[in-house]
Amino acid sequence: MKTGNLWFIFINASLINNFVLAYFLGICPFLGVSGKLSTASRMGMAVTFVMLISSMAAYGIHAFLLWVDAPFLQLISYIVVIASTVQLVEMFIKKFSPTLFKALGIFLPLITTNCAILGLALFQTNKGYNFLESFVFALGAGLGFTLALVLMAGLREKLDFAEVPAIAKGTALTLLVAGILSLTFMGFAGLGG
């Protein structure tokens, strides 16, 4: 029962209720960084990493805020933790892979304002997950985000060679493709049982 539950949380976060395609969280990088396949997959990994750390931190903070009885500080403390995690990841990537740092560009600091990460912290609090469940939830959400981003990047690389009416070029076309992807992901609805 216990492991089955964890497995369900994972499938739920990554496929059935994919953060990008079902909850519309993290649309900014989804539209912005999905132009190239290699950048997209690395961006996905960076986001997954930030998600894991901020999810664990959010669990601790929530417990602490309950203890000091100050739930109105929740939002502010979550966003501060996320901002510092992103700063940490940024320094890490800059040191170990300057090329990746350049490729991600402005979107790296913008992970701070990625709704997917704050959304994850809020959802896990609302759902009352315990520590292990939160961890699995964050992992599933991060991998689901990466999957959506990589799928989108692959489609857009192909679309670059297609002939499209001038008015549809850019965001409108990307949104149409995202809509079809979202419909596809609805097919996973039966998986969780």
């Binding site: 909850y23 519309f24 965001t171 409108a172 949104l175 149409l176 809509g179 079809i180 979202s182």
Partner: peptide, 13 residues
């Protein structure tokens, strides 16, 4: 969710 993407795409178009 899919409808949201489509509607916004159509307004942008």
């Amino acid at each position: 969710p899919g409808g949201g993407f489509f509607t916004l795409a159509f307004w942008l178009l």
